[in-house]
C-alpha cells in the first residue's frame, strides 16, 4: 500500500498555502497563483538553480525557490527589495547578452525572457548603461526542422538536461567555460552532423528563441488525436489553420508519451497536405498508373489473392497500423492464405 503524500503548510508572502511533501517552493507558489520569475526551471527536469531569478527570501537569506523543498512552517518572501534588486541585475545582464530581435523571433509571445523582463519592470534607460555582448556567433540551420541561434541562448541548460534526462541521447552539452560557454555537440559539430535524432524535445522546452522550429506556428485551433506513425499511440494535438495541419505538439496528459514525441510524430506531418500524396488508388494499365475507384481496386486485389496460395504469398504489415489491424493481417495470412510468411516493417 502506498502512503498518502504528506501535505505541508507554509506561508508565501503572508498567504497560507499547502503543498505536497517534496514539492519545490517555486512549484508551490505557482500552484497558488503566486508568480516567481524563472528561466532555468522546467517542471519535467531536475532543478539546478542557475538563472538565480527565482530567488526568494527565507529567514533573511536568499535561496533559489526551485531548489528549495517545502517545509512545515516555512515563511517565504518572494519580493523583498533585496530580492528584487538581485533579480533585476540578473535580468538586465541577460538582456544585454541577448540578441533582441523580438519581431523576427520564433519565440514571440512564448518568450520567457520577455515575460520576466516585463514582470520585473526593466526600463530601456537602465539597459542603455550596460555594454551589449554582440557575440555575432553563426546560426546553425543544418537541421531540417529547427535552428539554433547561440546569440539568443541564455545557457539555462534546459536543452542539455532534456537530452540527458528525458531523451537519454546525450547529444548536447555545455562546451567551454564562463562567458564563452555555449550549448554544443561533440566536437562543436552542427546538429545534422551530430548524434541528434531531431526529436525536438529540446526545441519545445527552450524558454527563448534560441532553439526554434523553422516552420512558424500559426495554428488557429487545435485538434486532439493520436499519432498515426506507430503502434505506441502517442497523444498529440494537431494545430490546424483552415483545412490544413500546420503544427503538432505532444499531449502531456496522455500516459503513453506524457507530451514527448519523436521526429516523425513532431515534424512528419507534411505528407497530410502534400501534393504528391495519393488520395485515390492507382491501377497499372499498359505500363502506366491510372487513377481508379476504391471498389475497382479492392476487387482487383481480391481476385489476385484468389489466384494465389501458400508460399507464393507473403504479407508485410505496417507500424502505422494498430495492434488489432496487425493481428488481423497475420491471421488472414495464416488462415486464409495458408502461409507463415508474414513480417512487419518495424523489424527491418
Amino acid at each position: 500500500m502506498s502512503q498518502e503524500p504528506k501535505e505541508i503548510r507554509l506561508t508565501i508572502d503572508g498567504q497560507e498555502v499547502t503543498a505536497r511533501e517534496g514539492t519545490s517552493v517555486l512549484d508551490a507558489a505557482m500552484a497558488n497563483d503566486i508568480y516567481i520569475p524563472h528561466q532555468c526551471h522546467h517542471p519535467d527536469l531536475k532543478p539546478v538553480g542557475a538563472c538565480r531569478l527565482c530567488g526568494v527570501e527565507i529567514d533573511g537569506r536568499m535561496v533559489t525557490s526551485c531548489t528549495t523543498v517545502v517545509q512545515e512552517g516555512l515563511d517565504v518572501k518572494t519580493n523583498s527589495q533585496k530580492i528584487h534588486q538581485a533579480r533585476k541585475t540578473a535580468m538586465e545582464l541577460l538582456i544585454a547578452d541577448h540578441h533582441m530581435d523580438c519581431l523576427a523571433c520564433a519565440a514571440a509571445n512564448d518568450c520567457a525572457l520577455l515575460k520576466d523582463s516585463a514582470y520585473l519592470g526593466i526600463e530601456p534607460e537602465q539597459l542603455q548603461r550596460l555594454r551589449p555582448s554582440n557575440k555575432g556567433l553563426p546560426i546553425d540551420t543544418s537541421n531540417p526542422f529547427f535552428q539554433f541561434d547561440p546569440n539568443k541562448c541564455i545557457i539555462c541548460g534546459i536543452c542539455v538536461r532534456t537530452c540527458d534526462e528525458i531523451v537519454g541521447r546525450g547529444t548536447l552539452a555545455f562546451i567551454d567555460r564562463g562567458f564563452d560557454t555555449v550549448i554544443g555537440t561533440f566536437g562543436n559539430k552542427s546538429f545534422i552532423e551530430s548524434t541528434c535524432e531531431s526529436c525536438g524535445e529540446c526545441v519545445v522546452r527552450c524558454p527563448v528563441g534560441a532553439l526554434a522550429p523553422k516552420r512558424p506556428k500559426f495554428a488557429a485551433r487545435e485538434v486532439q488525436t493520436t499519432c498515426v506513425y506507430c503502434g505506441v499511440g502517442c497523444g498529440i494535438y494537431l494545430g490546424v489553420s483552415g483545412d490544413k495541419v500546420v503544427d503538432v505538439r505532444g499531449d502531456r496528459e496522455r500516459p503513453t508519451n506524457e507530451g514527448s514525441l519523436c521526429v516523425k510524430g513532431r515534424y512528419g506531418f507534411n505528407f497530410i497536405n502534400h501534393s504528391d500524396r495519393l488520395t485515390k488508388p492507382l491501377i497499372k494499365q499498359n505500363g502506366e498508373f491510372v487513377e481508379a475507384e476504391w471498389e475497382e481496386a479492392l476487387e482487383l486485389v481480391a481476385s489476385k489473392f484468389a489466384e494465389t496460395k501458400g508460399d507464393e504469398f507473403a504479407a508485410l504489415a505496417s507500424a502505422k497500423c494498430t495492434n488489432e489491424e496487425n493481428y488481423l493481417i497475420q491471421k488472414f495470412t495464416r488462415a486464409v492464405m495458408a502461409t507463415n510468411t508474414v513480417d512487419h516493417c518495424a523489424r527491418l
Binding site: A173, I175, R177, F186, N188, T195
Partner: peptide
C-alpha cells in the same frame, strides 16, 4: 570518442568536460 565508448557516456560529455 573512444574514451566516451570506454566509459559508456555520450561523446558530448567527454568533450564538455575537456573544454571546461
Amino acid at each position: 570518442e573512444q574514451i566516451a565508448r570506454f566509459i559508456h557516456v555520450p561523446a558530448s560529455r567527454v568533450f564538455g568536460v575537456a573544454t571546461f
